[in-house]
Design a protein around this nucleic acid. Sequence first.
DNA 1: ACCTACCTGTTT
DNA 2: AAACAGGTAGGT
Length: 295
Amino acid sequence: MPELPEVENVRRSLATLVPGRTIEAVQILSEGVFLTGGLDPSGWIIDSIERRGKYLILQLRRSEGTAREGRLIVHLRMTGRLLLHEVEAAWPKHTHVAMRLHLDGASDIWLTYHDPRRFGRLWLVSDGNMPAPRGLSELGIEPLTPACDATYLAEVARRRPHVRLKALLLDQRVLAGLGNIYADESLFLAGLHPAREAGGLRPREIARLCQAIRDVLEKAVSNGGTTLRDYTDGWNRQGAFQEQLMVYGRAGLACKTCGNTISSGKLAGRTTCWCPRCQRLPRRAGNGPSTIRSA
DNA sequence: ACCTACCTGTTT
DNA sequence: AAACAGGTAGGT
């Protein structure tokens, strides 16, 4: 489900109410979703909520004295949702964790983790009880920071000249936060075919890709993310960017720019959509169009 | 670069 | 009944 824009909108929806509160009661309703490494998840004060790639990180501090610190790390994977509730309820099916958050002088609120497919995880990391998830520690740069520039992408392309653009954009060790939707949308905006090899890009194309990634993600964030089916923010609000998708999920439909029929195929193991006219595949060595199965 | 696994729900 | 789904980890 959620890629960078969706996770960022979850973060924002939690950021006004959650920091400053203490995790009091914690109900663990399913095994294996919340990895606590033997620590008690209650009694922590939440200092802040941050995002890194598709991970949410709640910075924690122990209430009684000491400078003990911890992190509650959340990855929603495909269908995970963090949801706020003003009253305790009979939690719906697929609710795996429920936490009561307390603040003196305010009403308690509940934060639940809901995930039909159970791919997502929560980790409580402190005092070496367990390592942070490797996916988090190996993340590449944030696409919406100045570090994401043409110089960086050119260097990545120099090191991995034969990786195809779709695979490159999906690689969280390169850029943190793009998934299937925004990889396709970025490549469309940049006018680059997803099967192009990174090493074959000219400097102008690298610059275009860099700008396209930034533009797509910023617009998606400001539109509340993309809701295809499951995604909502912490207040159960859907996104609106799905209305502005140019290629993702539009195979067989007319390109909004040129009217050509949007193609699709499997690339880097994922369904990939592109416009064959707006995103031409230059006929030169190394682009491997024969390996794409078109629909 | 490709597979499979992890899960459940929805669509074809 | 089968294919597919916004993601990642692990294996070959």
